[in-house]
Each structure stands twice: as C-alpha cells, then as structure tokens.
Amino acid sequence: MADSLSYLICNACGTQHPTADRASLPTCFICDDPRQFVPASGQSFTTLQALRDEGTRRNEFIPLPNHSGHSTGADPETPQLTAIVTTPSFGIGQRAILVRTPAGNVLWDCVAYLDDATVEALKRLGGIQAMVISHPHFYTTHLEWAARFECPVYLAAEDAQWLARPGKEHDTEGRRVFLEEVETKVVIGGVDSGVRIVKLGGHFPGSQVLVYDGYILTADTLMMTPAGKSTWKVDALGNPRTRPPGVNSFTFMWSIPNMIPLNPTEITRIWHVVKNYEFRSAHGGFVGADIVDDVSLKSRVLDSMKIQIRAMGYDQHPLLEETV
C-alpha cells in the first residue's frame, strides 16, 4: 500500500482516495453525485504531499466570539470555538471548528490540508480528543487527522457508503465510530464533554449538527443565508431597526451548489428533532457564516422553514402551525 501522503486528493471537493495511481482514478465519485459537481475546468487531483511541497498553503486559526450565556465555567475571555481555515482556499473551502470543553477538545468537521505547523498549533491548544464529521462532503482527509491525534472520529452510519477509504485496511486502529442514534454524547476519558452530536438528515441521510453550551454548528444541514448573517440593527442614518418580516436566516438544501431544495417532509422532520435543543449562536461551514448571541435563534430556524415551505406553494402545510 502506498504512503497515504501520496494518495490522490480531488481538487474540487478535497476527498482523499486510496491510490497514488492517476491512471486508475479518472473521476471522483463524490463530485459525480448530483449534490456536488465537477468544475468546468474538468476533474483533477493532487496529493497531500504535493500541497505541502508547494509551500503556499497554511491553516489559519480564527477565534470565534463567545456568547453571553455560556455556562461551562470556562474563562469568558478564552474562545470556546476556533475556526481552522485553509488559505489559499482548497477544495470546497469549508472551515473546521475546534470546540474547547473542560473534558477536552472536539474537532467539528475537517479541512483537507494538514501539515506539521497545524499539528503543533493544535497541540498548543490542547490537541484533539475527538472528531465529528457532519457529512460526506467534508470527509476529506479525516483519517490523516485522526491518526495524527490518535483520536476517534464520529460519522453517521447512514453515510458510510460515501467513504473513499472504507474498511479496516485504511482504518487499522479502528478510529471511526459509526453512529446509529439521533443523539450521541461525546465522552472523553470517561467524562461527558457536554457535546451532543445530533443527526438531522436532509442534505445527506446522516447529516449531523453539533450542539454545545448554547452553540449549534450547522455545516450544510442548516445553511445560513446572507439575510441570516445580517444584523439589521441600524438603518443608513444610524437609527435602530429590527429584522424585516419574511426575511429568512437559513435554507434547507439537498444540494447547495446545484440549488436543489429539500422537500417539506424532510424540512418538517428536521424541525421535530432540532426543536428539542437550545441554542443562541450558530456557526456554519464557511467563513462568515455566524449568528452570535441571539436568543430568538430557534425561532429564526422555524421561520426560515416556514418561508421555504410557503415559497414551494404549500400554504396549508402542518409545519406552518408550529411554534417555539
């Protein structure tokens, strides 16, 4: 078996495939799925070693703001969440988020690029004790990360077919943990970290969010909209204002790049799970996809669902009667 640093990585989505033989891999099965796409320039691959050798990329660490209601007893000046962003952007361009808890650190999602500088920076922050991947588009090089930090990585059992490196021959230490339940507690060293992995489905059958201490990390499952990121606090003259009625904060998509929405049945099923959790700050899969310290955030999720369902022509749908 070839060294995994020489395994081919899709330039479009960042998925690492278990071969160094370019002649054996003409396409990426993730990009050929209707939820993703092959760029107009065509399919192409690189390797983790080649990305390192280029010397142009690095992972930046960006602290995200704490909300005022956090309750874990952590120093309010210490960021509970830190985004990890590859620059220049690679693949889909998502960010990972390090969640710092008293029990240990949990890495939410994964970026494809990993180098020694990233490992050392994370060690200074306490390392990684567990990883959680939201959905297959962000599987990327998760086995490389899990091996470097010798930690488990939690994946939805429903989405195991999308693993490009399946089986024990690639996960020799058995680091992958396939989740069957709707909710999973992340336990680190026998201690409940407070992190909850919540399976909502929709984008993929097993699409997951992470809930911790008033934060919800949404990836592509609850996709934040430009209007959702707007504050609407003041007008052009500096006068106070509120959000206009009928403006959404999230959209619910089967395919984000190809703009295929979820149907009302799926949206309703997502609501009946997510409504059971409390959160006031949301952080999506990309830089800037943040709503911080809004006690009405759950209502904004429900309002967004109602807006999408009405726009599809379902004026009498039962979800329209739901309240928070």
Rank of each mutant, 00 (worst) to 15 (best):
P76C: 12
T82M: 09
H137V: 15
G69N: 14
T265P: 15
I9Y: 10
G126K: 10
N258Q: 12
Y215M: 08
V186F: 00
D32V: 06
L51N: 04
M131A: 03
T225A: 00
S281P: 15
V247F: 14
D213G: 06
E169R: 14
T101I: 10
G214Y: 03
A12L: 07
S71W: 13
V38C: 07
P79L: 08
A121K: 09
Y154F: 13
P244T: 01
G93E: 02
G246M: 03
S207D: 11
D3V: 13
I92L: 09
N239Q: 13
D293W: 07
F204K: 14
T242Y: 02
I62F: 14
D53P: 08
S304T: 04
I256H: 07
A12G: 07
G127W: 11
I128R: 03
E322L: 04
F61H: 06
G174K: 00
F204A: 15
V85D: 15
P205T: 15
V153D: 01
H67D: 09
E158L: 15
V301I: 09
A96T: 00
L81S: 11
D213P: 12
M224Q: 02
V191N: 04
R165E: 10
S299H: 13
I128M: 06
L107N: 02
D115I: 04
G69A: 14
I188C: 01
A311S: 13
E321H: 13
A157P: 05
T72H: 08
E144H: 11
H70T: 13
S134G: 09
C110F: 12
D220W: 09
S6L: 14
D171V: 05
V195N: 02
Q161A: 15
